[in-house]
Amino acid sequence: MFDFSLTNTYSDLDLTRIEAGVNLRYEVSKRLSLLGEYRWIDLDDEAPYLGDLTGSVSLYSIAVGYRF
């Protein structure tokens, strides 16, 4: 009536998280600089149960810096 063949796998956790990032700063002049950053994070849920936690996010930013 009930299938318990997979019951022993419900408590398994198997997660892989990879994070990579690049950070760049360019000094245009003595006072002015350009900044950039990119980060990528990926999570792979290889033993999902009830819900799959797999997901990824890319974060990027750009800015100008001024010294005085």
Binding site: S58, L59, S61, I62, A63
Partner: peptide
Amino acid sequence: GGWDASTDEA
């Protein structure tokens, strides 16, 4: 400056 993000799945 400014920043933003793109997401995929959970």
